[in-house]
Nucleic acid binder design. Sequence first.
DNA 1: CGGACCATTGACCATAGTCAACCGCCGTGG
DNA 2: CCACGGCGGTTGACTATGGTCAATGGTCCG
Lengths: 243, 243
Amino acid sequence: MDRAHDILVRKLKEHSDLDESDVEALRSLAKTPRIIGPHEDVVIQGAKPRVSVILLHGMVARYKVIATGRRQYLSFHLAGDWPDAQTLFLERMDHGVCALGEALVALVPHEEIIALFKRRPNVGFAIWRETLIDAAIFREAVVRLGARPVLMRMAHFFCELYYRARASGLTKPGICQLPIHQGHLAETLGIALVTVNRTLQALRRTGTMEFRDENLAIHDWKALCEIADFDPDYLNLKRPGRL
Amino acid sequence: MDRAHDILVRKLKEHSDLDESDVEALRSLAKTPRIIGPHEDVVIQGAKPRVSVILLHGMVARYKVIATGRRQYLSFHLAGDWPDAQTLFLERMDHGVCALGEALVALVPHEEIIALFKRRPNVGFAIWRETLIDAAIFREAVVRLGARPVLMRMAHFFCELYYRARASGLTKPGICQLPIHQGHLAETLGIALVTVNRTLQALRRTGTMEFRDENLAIHDWKALCEIADFDPDYLNLKRPGRL
DNA sequence: CGGACCATTGACCATAGTCAACCGCCGTGG
DNA sequence: CCACGGCGGTTGACTATGGTCAATGGTCCG
């Protein structure tokens, strides 16, 4: 699980400073690998996990199901993300986590992590920061759903995902593979499936981006950001990386 | 500022265990009081504050303004809340905080708080938990905006606010004073002002609640929760308190 | 008394939702 | 081998929810 360690450290360094001893301490954490099949749940809504999940490969999504049966996706996660970090201090999962394509995760026991925080507060602060960025992403999702018209909403969603993927080195220039289907978009953006389809076409017609067959192609990043009113500040990444 | 200390400790104890020394350590924090006028900003979007805000009295709201000029409220805060706790580890405010009615806050220097975490990890964990509950509330807001029809959405909003106010002892039985106007509701729930008005009327007609003149009256809590599909689990409060 | 602000109402409109059919691709099994 | 079924995506016709625009009323305050 040395690869797990590298991915985790790389991600935390996107926003936090870690010294040699911090990195060393993170290496010492027990990391149990697990493969998750497409659409399989990694964490069940309502569970009380005693381990945390670090995503090593693939994509997972967090979601809630409400009484009407409708599913709402909350966020999408890429390699290095820690999609259930909040279980460190919130006992019960208020949502589920599922894999989109096939995913590889590492499981780390809570007690080890918390013991580590006491030894090395800086590691705790880095992970705390990770959870705060997570919250910042939710805030932006609130704005997206509450204040942005549909075209802008979808454009903004793709901007965020592309930007984050790029910061983590998961893109080819202008291209990004995402195991996301139109149904996921509907349940993320709060619109009907047919509207997703029509809005994707409208986005294609702008000439700025194209999403089909699980592939996102960015043709004109700057113009797309204009359409989306996208400003990556809220992601709090240290090295913006020119796009 | 002893009152500030009491309010803060009381709030943290809604979800976390603090021992005598923890409480004592929190008492030692410097707390500078400040009065905020109605609609005045407590924290400006884009600022890089070196102090954190603890709300002692009144209500504040967090919001973002997007390029179109539309304002989206993200959350509302009651006495004891720590509306900008994330500035402890995220340098730049991605949103603003404004007072609704008149509000009283206490300002606490970041450096003191962070030094305290190193001495007493448990206090850090309590405040970390506070920020995680904050994130849980944003997640629920995402679901509200993305998945719930308008009547349910508004009912859910009032359920949350009433439940939180009650947990903090800020309600009279079935009654809660909230300095919120219909315009705020529109920019919180992602609907037009006229729709707010009509939906409030629809809610009155259900006989479960009434909101007018800044007063929320709950007539039938259980039925209202049904309409709202409200389940307070996500608030992670220790003592649910029968309603 | 006049103006500002908030709430309310009515008439009309537009965006997105519902319903339903069809296409293309792929994997499976007769 | 090809037929079939399932799934994801696409399209069209119609509907409905909520938005826009505009006017009115009430209350508080200067």
